[in-house]
Design a protein around this nucleic acid. Sequence first.
RNA 1: GUGGGUAUAGUCAAGUGGUUAAGACACAUGGUUGUGGUCCAUGCAUGCGAGGGUUCGAAUCCCUUUACCCACCCCA
Length: 442
Amino acid sequence: MPNVFVEELCRIVASEEDIMLTKAPKGTKDILPADTARWRRLERDFVGACRKAGFEEIRTPVFEHTELFARGIGDASDVVRKQMYTFEDLGHRSVTLRPEGTAGVARAFIENKMYAEPLPVKLWYEISCFRYERPQSGRFREFHQFGIEVFGSHDMTADAEVIGLADAFLRGLGLTELSLRVNSIGCPSCRPSYREALKVFLEPRYTELCDTCKLRYERNPLRILDCKSSVCHELVHGAPVMMDYLCEECRSAFTQLESYLTARSIAYEVDTSIVRGLDYYTKTAFEFVSDMIGAQGTVCGGGRYDHLIAELGGPDVPGVGFGLGIERLLLLLENTGIELPAEPGPDVFVAYIGDGAKLRAQAVATDLRASGVSADIDTAARGIKGQFKYADRIGARYALTIGDNELSSGVAPLKDMATGDERKVPLADIAKFIVGNSEGEG
RNA sequence: GUGGGUAUAGUCAAGUGGUUAAGACACAUGGUUGUGGUCCAUGCAUGCGAGGGUUCGAAUCCCUUUACCCACCCCA
C-alpha cells in the first residue's frame, strides 16, 4: 500500500545525510547509566511524597487527539500555536505528542468517569513531554515532568495541599534557595474587567511598547507585565494589578490560601507578575523559581483550573495541580552542589584462574546471586590482573579468587578491596559471610 | 522564528601559514608465569565538525554548510 509516508521513508533512506544516524534529534538527550541512579532517587522520593499525601499514580498515552490540547490548553496559547509535535497518522487522525500533562489526565478523568469516585480524586504521574522550541539551558524538546492533579475540590486547602507537596518534596532534597511565588489570576467573572483596566492604562503608552508587547496588547495584555524588555518594564510601572480587581469570591479565596500556607509554615511571596501561559488556569497560580539554572528558572509551576473539565465536555468539576521539570530539578541540584548518592558497585567480584576455575566461578557467581548477594564476573576473557583491575573500576566491595588450589581445598581468598585485607573463606560460606558483614554496618 | 558564541582523539585541551598535530586524564597491553587502586614502559587523531577555495605549503586565511551552547520568545 504505497502512501506518502512510505515515499518519504524511501527518500530519507536514500539521502546522504547519514551523519544524523548517530545523532539524537535536536533537543533530546540520552539518560546514561551515570545519571539513571539520580533519576531513580528522585522518583523514589517523589513517589514517597505522593503516597504520604494520599495520591495515586496514573499513566496516560504519550499522544492524544490534537483537539484535546487545542481545547484544553487554549488555541491562542504559544504552546498550541507553534510548539506542538502534531502529525496525521495512517488513519488520517490528527494526533499530538503531549506538550504537558494536565490535559491528558483530565481527559482520562472524564473518560473513566472518575468523578463518580469519592472526591477529591488525587493523582500523580511522571511523564515525558514534547514541545518544538529552540533548546537552551533547562529547555528541551523532549523533557520530563513529575505532576499531580487534585480533581473535585473548590476549597483552597486543595491548593495548599498541592503547593505543600511540591514544597515538601523539594525541601526534602535539601533545596532551600528556591523561592515560591504565588498569585491569583482571577476567574472568568473578574479577569475581563482587569484586562480592560490594564488596556486603558497601557493605551496612551502603546506606541512605546516593544513589538512583541504590541501583539500582546490585544491577545494577552497580562503578559506585558512580565516582559523582560527594560522599556516595557518601565512603562508598566504603576499599572493596575489583578489583585485589586479580584471579585469577592477570588479575593477571599486568595486570602484563605495565604492563611493556609502560613499555617503550614510554607514561605512564599506574592508576585503579581506571574501569568500562566496555559489558558485553563483560574485563581491560584504559583511557581517555584531558581536563579541558579539560567533563564528558564521555573522548576515547578501550577495552579487551579476550575473550568477545564467542563470545557472538555465533562461535569463541572474543578481542579488544581502542578508540573515539575525533572531536568531542571537535576540541573538545580547539580548547580547547588547537592549530591545524590551513586549506585554502589557489586558486593563481590568472582575472579578465576584457569579453565576449571572458570567453570566453577560461574556456578559460584550464580549461587551468590540466588542468595541475594550481587556478584559480577569476568566475561571478557581477561587475565587475573585484568580481572582485579576491572573489579576495582566497577567498585566491587570484595574480590573472590578461584583457581586450582581453591577447587581442591574448597576454601578461597576473599579480599576486601578497600582495605586490602584478605581472608580464607569456605566457598560454601561466601554469601553468609558477606551478608553478615553488611548487616553489621547498617 | 530572531540574535550571539563555540567546534582539534572517549574527555579536557596546546597549537593563529612551514619538517612526523604538544600535554593531561581515560582506555588497552606488559613490568617473567595467582591479585586492583601508586609507579614505569608501550599503544591510542594520515587527522583538526563537513564541503569547497586561496597557496609551493592550511588546524591556522576566505566562502558555504552542519551540529552544539547561550539569550530573546515561551515555559517544566
